[in-house]
Every structure is written in structure tokens, then in C-alpha cells.
Design a protein around this nucleic acid. Structure first.
Length: 561
DNA sequence: CAGCGGGTTG
């Protein structure tokens, strides 16, 4: 076999994925010129075997074969995949060989620099890109824009994409999906829609990746029904399509996410199951969640970090803390989300001490807490009435960990103080917090004022809420109730009158529970089913029993209800 | 006889 023949064969074997056979043939060749080496090298690089590609490049140098521009662009592909390290030394080599200005090498360099860890090669990439001037090809634009998108500079990338359109460069489905994804990351629905229209015009809308990124755009930046319409109209769908729409629904309409799973015509993967696990968490559907857990284990996804995190969260939200703990303890590697889910799970199920203990283990394990962890901890203390513990955690968050609290945390601390009857302190905190207190913050105070029958602060809080939102029905009702409890009948009448004046009615809050495969939903004062009155009776017995045991915690709940 | 780029889902 001639050398040319063998090289052609290597190329076609690599193209069909038989890289090992190609290598065997390569090793048997008596003479190997630069073309043969490059064919083998590029076979490795384009199949993601960058380690082997770089090793081969070293052997080639050792064999004394001089690389040309074709060789170098393939090596750069391997560098890019390995985090962009080594791009500069290949650049230097290209310079020495005098091939640093050939289009393929420059584009490969832009790509490799644009992939370098942390995005610190973007400036170098841009420099090469700008130097190309009129020599820019679609590949140059795509590499540069993808580089920006890769490192969180989506807006710069989108700006460049706009220039690309103005320059009349032909658009590929690749660049369109990159740009659409960038739009959804920065929440730029408007630009995304423009690219949508553009893609339809140049017949790229039928491309699966383009359509998938559009579904994702509408899921994250628009009404989920817009995403659904697009999804329904797609003539062809793949796993990414299903995962995108299911993930979109898992947050907003978990029941629909389940429905979609049932309608799936392909095998779900671990991403699908992660979204479905969250959907179960959102529905507090324990039995469904357990079935999903079974599906996860059967498919050997049990070691996946994100699935495990979702499972811990699901079991916690379904009240099954034992299984949450089991999953958590089985995890071989944990991230901050794992700890947060477990700590929050203990908190929301009333195991404050366990939550605090686990928080200490987390810190001991070297994981730096964030504000979500503290929110879980402080809210647990608030629900358990552990005012001092909660307050100390708040202080530790501020002074030990230098975490700036957000509104949610302030609301939580205000709840903590106010529910415990420390209304004055709660008010002072609202008054001195560096953020503008919103409806929910004042609402926490107002609710506690009702619980503790404090008319003076209740009036003030209700006034603030109505100032922010004149239609805040709850505020009128709570204030009226406080007046009534204090026998201020004149003020009571006025407040009720103002309530009528808002013209709005309170939306009925619904709750649901899953019992032996059936979902039941109900509201307070619901008498539509016989089970409700039975549940009411049981509740009365429980309350009586708890009264007899005399727990402050339970007392607070009953008075707050 | 060879070469670059680039995609969507948690």
C-alpha cells in the first residue's frame, strides 16, 4: 500500500469513529510524512481525544517531522478542548514556521484563546479577530462570539453578532443557537425574537438545535405557553427538546411537567429525571417522587450530583426527612446546593438542632456558606421560636461571613423577632435596614401584631403596606381584626369600609395532599367533601391534646392561625 | 493524501 493510500484510509477510518483501527494502520506505516501524521492527529482531535492528539504531536516532533499549518490547527483544537492551555506555545511555533496568518490557523487560535480558563484569553482572541479585518470568515465570527458567550460576556457576544449580521456574513444554525442561548441567559427576549424571525427567514428554524434554544428562550424569558406553542409545532423533537420543555414546566406548572413525561416518546435521561424530581417536590408528591427515585437507581444515575440534590430537596419538601438524609449521606461528593438542601430540609421539618449541627459540619468541611443556607437556618429558628439562636446566626452571617443580607433574610429575621413578641425590635430593624422595606417585610410585622394584639404598630405596618399597594386586601383584613380584638369598633368599621372600597376580593388559597395515589385539593372552610369534616374533628382532638401537653410552640401556631 | 469553527437541556 502506498503512503497516500494508507493516509486516505486513516482519514476515512477516523471519520467513521474507528480511531483505534486507524492508529493500528498508522503504526504499521514504514514511512510517515507530515500528511500522514496530520491525518492521525486530526482524527484524535476531532473525536475529542485531545490527550492522544497532544501525545502524537510530541512523537511527531521527536521523529523530526516539521508541522505545517494543517498540523497546527488540529493541535490547537486539542488545546482548546483541554482548557486552552498551550495555545500560546503553538502560536509561537506557527510564527516560527511563518504560518501564523493562514486563515485556518488564525481561526483555530481565536477559538483556543477564547476557551482559555476563566476567559482571560478573550483579549488575545479579540486582538487576532480584529487584525483579520476583511479576512474574517464565518468561522472567525463564530469562534469569537462563542468565546464571549462561554465566559459570561453574552452582551459583548450579542453586539458582535449584530455586527456579523450587518456585515452580511452567512448565518449557520450553530451561530444562531449560540446567539439565542445568549439572549436567554441575559433575559433579552426582544433580541431573541428578532433572531427567531431571522432564522425563520433563512430557513434555519427547522434546525433542531435552533428550535431547542428558542424553546428554552421562551421558557426562561416569556410565557411558558409561547414555549409550548413552539414545542407543539415542532415536526421533530429530541431528548434536549423534551428536557427543555419539562424543565420549563417543572418550575411553573409541575403537574404539566409530569404530563409531558408521560407523553415522552424517547427514553428520559438524568436531566429529565432531575426536573421531574423537582416537579414532585413542588407538588409534595411523595409517592411519585419515590417512583422517580426508583427510576434514577435503575438507570444508575444514583451518583449524579444534580439528581441527588434534587432528591434530597424532594424528600425534604415531602416531609420524608429520613430518606432525604439517606440520599444525602450516600453522596460521595457534595456541593453547596447539597448542603443547603439538607440543612433547609431539616429546618422546614422542624429539626432545628440537626440543621445547625449540619451547618457546623458544612463549615468544618470547608464549604463557605451563602445567604441561602442562612435563610434556611434562620427561618427554621423562626418557626421553632428559637429567637436567640436565630439572632446569633444573623449576626454571625453579618460579621463572621461578611454576607450582605437580602430582603428575604431581613423578612425572615423580622418574622423571627416579631413572632416571638419582640415587635419593637422588629420595627427598629425595619427602620434601620439598608434596603427599602417592601410589602412582605411590613406584612411579617403586621401578622405578628395581630398575633400579639399590638394595635399601635399594627396600624403603622398596615399603613405602610397600603402606601405601597393600596389594594393590599390582607392588610385591611388584618388591621380590622386587630381593631376588633382591641374593641376599637369605630376604627374597625372604617377599615372594613376601606376594604370594600378596594373592590377586590381575597383569592382563596388552595392546599393539596397526596393520599394513596389520589391528589386531593381543598381550601379552608371547605365543606364539599365528608373527609374534610372528619379531618376537622381529628384536628380539634389534636389541638385539645396539645393544649393539655402545653407547648408554647403549638400555642403560637394556634394563635397565629 | 491533510486542515479551522460552532450548538440547544438541570
Amino acid at each position: 500500500m502506498s503512503q497516500k493510500h494508507a493516509t486516505t484510509l486513516i482519514k476515512s477510518l477516523c471519520a467513521r469513529g474507528a480511531v483505534l483501527h486507524a492508529r493500528a494502520l498508522f503504526d504499521e506505516m514504514p514511512d510517515r510524512d507530515v500528511v500522514a501524521w496530520t491525518a492521525m492527529l486530526s482524527g484524535y482531535a476531532s473525536s475529542g481525544r485531545h490527550r492522544e492528539a497532544l501525545d502524537l504531536f510530541r512523537s511527531m516532533a521527536a521523529a523530526g517531522v516539521i508541522p505545517n499549518e494543517f498540523t497546527l490547527s488540529s493541535v490547537l483544537t486539542a488545546c482548546r478542548a483541554g482548557g486552552g492551555g498551550g495555545a500560546a506555545s503553538i502560536h509561537a511555533l506557527a510564527l516560527r514556521r511563518g504560518v501564523d496568518h493562514t486563515p485556518y490557523v488564525v481561526n483555530a487560535l481565536i477559538n483556543a484563546y477564547g476557551s482559555r480558563g476563566g476567559g482571560d484569553g478573550l483579549v488575545d482572541a479579540r486582538w487576532l479577530f480584529d487584525a483579520l479585518g476583511e479576512g474574517r470568515t464565518a468561522a472567525s465570527w463564530t469562534s469569537m462570539i462563542a468565546g464571549y458567550a462561554r465566559w459570561g460576556q453574552e452582551n459583548t457576544g450579542l453586539q458582535l453578532f449584530q455586527n456579523m449580521i450587518q456585515d452580511d456574513v452567512e448565518l449557520s444554525p450553530f451561530i444562531c443557537s449560540i446567539a439565542i442561548h445568549a439572549c436567554s441567559l441575559v433575559g433579552n427576549l426582544y433580541f431573541g425574537q428578532q433572531i427567531h424571525a431571522l432564522s425563520m427567514r433563512i430557513a434555519l428554524g427547522a434546525n433542531l438545535a435552533v428550535a431547542n434554544s428558542l424553546v428554552d428562550l421562551y421558557c426562561t424569558c416569556a410565557n411558558i405557553l409561547d414555549a409550548r406553542r413552539l414545542f407543539d409545532e415542532m415536526p421533530e423533537r429530541n431528548l434536549v427538546t423534551w428536557n427543555t420543555i419539562i424543565a420549563g414546566y417543572s418550575r411553573r406548572d409541575p403537574l404539566m411537567a409530569m404530563q409531558l413525561l408521560v407523553n415522552m416518546d424517547i427514553e428520559p435521561n438524568c436531566l429529565t429525571l432531575t426536573s421531574i424530581t423537582s416537579a414532585c417536590a413542588g407538588l409534595s408528591a411523595l409517592r411519585c417522587g419515590q417512583q422517580v427515585h426508583g427510576a434514577v437507581l435503575r438507570r444508575n444515575y444514583g451518583d449524579d450530583l444534580k439528581v441527588s440534590n434534587a432528591l434530597v430537596d424532594m424528600y425534604s419538601k415531602c416531609g420524608n426527612i429520613l430518606n432525604a438524609k439517606k440520599v444525602f449521606n450516600m453522596m460521595t461528593c457534595k456541593d453547596i446546593l447539597s448542603w443547603t438542601s439538607m440543612i433547609g430540609g431539616y429546618g422546614m421539618n422542624g429539626y432545628v438542632n440537626e440543621a445547625i449541627k449540619l451547618f457546623n459540619s458544612m463549615v468544618h468541611a470547608g464549604v463557605h456558606p451563602d445567604h441561602v443556607v442562612f435563610l434556611g437556618l434562620i427561618s427554621a429558628c423562626s418557626h421553632a421560636g428559637l429567637v436567640d439562636e436565630g439572632w446569633n446566626l444573623f449576626r454571625s452571617m453579618l460579621f463572621e461571613y461578611n454576607i450582605q443580607p437580602n430582603k428575604e433574610i431581613y423578612g425572615c429575621v423580622i418574622n423571627l423577632l416579631a413572632r416571638a413578641g419582640r415587635l419593637r425590635e422588629a420595627f427598629i430593624l425595619i427602620d434601620t435596614m439598608p434596603l427599602t422595606p417592601d410589602e412582605s417585610v411590613w406584612g411579617a410585622l403586621l401578622g405578628a401584631c395581630k398575633m400579639h394584639r399590638n394595635l399601635e404598630l399594627g396600624r403603622l405596618a398596615a399603613g405602610k403596606i397600603i402606601e405601597i399597594n393600596p389594594d393590599a386586601v390582607e392588610a385591611y383584613i388584618l388591621l380590622a381584626n386587630i381593631c376588633a380584638a382591641d374593641s376599637k369598633w369605630g376604627e374597625y368599621a372604617v377599615t372594613r369600609m376601606l376594604l370594600k372600597g378596594t373592590g377586590s376580593s381575597k383569592e382563596v388559597g388552595m392546599s393539596w395532599i397526596e393520599l394513596t395515589d389520589e391528589m386531593y385539593s381543598f381550601s379552608t372552610a371547605d365543606s364539599s367533601s365528608p373527609q374534610v369534616s372528619l379531618a376537622d374533628e381529628v384536628l380539634q382532638i389534636l389541638v385539645q391534646h396539645m393544649d393539655e401537653t402545653g407547648s408554647d410552640f403549638i400555642d403560637n401556631i394556634c394563635r397565629g392561625a
